[in-house]
Design a protein around this nucleic acid. Sequence first.
RNA 1: GUCCCCUUCGUCUAGAGGCCUAGGACACCUGGUUUUCAUCCAGGCAACAGGGGUUCGAAACCCCUAGGGGACGCCA
Length: 498
Amino acid sequence: MQKVRTRIAPSPTGDPHVGTAYIALFNRCFAKQNEGEFILRIEDTDQARSTAKSEQDIFAALRWLGVDWSEGPDVGGPFGPYRQSQRSSLYQEQIEVLLDSGHAFHCFCTAQRLTDLRNQQMADKTTPGYDGHCLHLSKEEIAQKLADEQEYVIRMQVPAEGECRFEDMLRGEIAINWQQIDMQVLMKSDGLPTYHFANVVDDHFMEISHVIRGEEWINSTPKHLLLYQYFGWQAPVFCHMPLLRNPDKSKLSKRKNPTSINYYRDMGYLPEAVVNYLGMMGWTMPDGRELFTIDEMTDNFDLMRVSLGGPVFDVEKLDWLNGKYIRERLSDTQFMQLFAQWAFDEQKMAQIIPLLKDRVERFSDVVPLAGFFLSGLPEISAESFVHKQLNEEQMRKILQFTLWQLENGTDLSRDAVEQECVRLAAYCGFKIRDFLFPLFVAITGKAVSTSVIDAISIIGIDVSRARIRAAIGILGGISKKETKTLEKDFRDFAQSAE
RNA sequence: GUCCCCUUCGUCUAGAGGCCUAGGACACCUGGUUUUCAUCCAGGCAACAGGGGUUCGAAACCCCUAGGGGACGCCA
C-alpha cells in the first residue's frame, strides 16, 4: 500500500489563520495515525501578497499549537524545495508537457476583454467563464504574438460536455458538469503558476496520498482531477472538511470573529486548549471525552468520524475549555511560569517600560497605569465615552476609520500609527487630541493613560481590533446603512491620500 | 443567477434501521458548598427543518421542498 502523506499548504498572505491550523491538525492526525508523514508547503505564487513575515508567523503559530511537520521549507526533506516560489523550473517543465499534448494553450486576451466578457455573461445570466477566444489560434499566430512579446497566460482545456465524477472520502460521489468548469489559467502572465496548477504538480511530485482540505475546494476538484488525467498521474484521495463558521454561519472571517492564531496567544489562551478546541470542531473522541491532547487525538483519530455540518467557532466554549485546562492541568508552578512568560515577554516589556517610567512614582503605580496591556478587553461602558466635543456617532466613525486604516497598512510601528492617526484626524476635521479620545478609552480603558499610539503598536493588531470593535459595540454599534456611508467616506479618504 | 455541499437542543456534538419517551458538553435558569465572587456539586430548560416514500419498525435509507453555506479571479 502507498504510504500516507498529507500536507497543509498555506499561502503566506496574512495572519496565521485558525482555519489553517484546523485543517493542518486533521491532516497531521490522519497522517500520523497511519504512520505516514505530514508536510508543510508554502504556496507563495501570489507575488504581490506573499510576505516572509507572514510565512514566519505561520510557522510560529502552528508550532505554538503543537501542530508540527516532518518536511517543510524550514526543516527540509527529500521532496524539496517546499516553497513554490523556488520550484518555478518544475512548473515550466510541466506546462510544456501540457502545451505539447494540446491540453493547454496560450491566451493573449487582455484583462479588459475578460472583464467585459464576464460582465456580459453576468448580464445574460449565464455561467461566467472564458469563451475560448484564443483556443483556435494557429501555431504561426501564436509564434508571432510571442515574438512580439505580447503578454499571455496559459489556460487548460476543459471538456465541453459530460460530467466529472469523483469520490470524496466523507461525502461519497460528487458529480459536476464540465460546463461549469472554466478554462482555468495555469500560468500567469508573470510566469508563475496559479494555485490549481502548482498544487497538482506539487502534490504529485511530493507524493501526497490524501488531500484533506476545506470544502471551498470541492468545485475546483474537477480541474485538479483533469490535470492528473492529462499528466497520466495517479490522483490522491480527496477529503473535503467542513468550513469553520462565524456565529451567523458564514465562513469564518476576521470581520466577525478573531481568526488570527496570534489573537488567541495574545489573549492568554493555552495552545493545548486551542488545539483541543479545534479538534472538537466536527470531530469527537470515540468515548466522548472533551478534554484531549493532540497526541490523544492522534491515537484515537478516525477521519470517518468527521461530521459535515459547518461548526460555529464558539469563543465561549473555548473560554470554558481554556479555564478547565488552567484549573485542572496546570500546577501552581506551571501557572506561574507560563503566566510570567506570557505577561513579561521581554521584547514587549522593553517597549512598555519607557512609557511607564516617566509616569510612576512607585512600583505600586504600575498596575493601575499599565494593567491594560495585559487585560483582554478593558471594562468600559457608555459613560466612559462621555465627551464635550464628540458625540457617539463621531466616535464610532473615528474608531472604525482607525481600525480600517490599521488593517490596511502592514506597518504597525508607533510612527506609522501616529502618522495615520494625524492624517485621519485632519481628514475628518477633528483636533488630534479629540480624535484620540475614543481610542484612549477603547484601547486603554481610560481617557488618560500612556500614549495610545504606542499602546496600539505594542498590543498588536489582533487585540487592538478586538478592543476597538468592542468599543464600537458599546457606542451603539454601526448599522448596515451607517457602514455603507462610512465605507464610501473612507474610500474618499484613501483616495485623497494618493 | 448557475452549480456544488450541508441540515439533531441557541452553540459543539452522540447517533451506522429497533438499545431513542434522542445521550453528553457549553451557554442559560434553580438549589447546595464557599466570608463575597468564581470554582465545585446536584437539578432544570432545550433539538431530529418540512412533506412524501421504503420498512413490521426510521433521527438514521430514497425523493421533493425549504433554509443555510460555498464556488463561479492572471487569490489561495
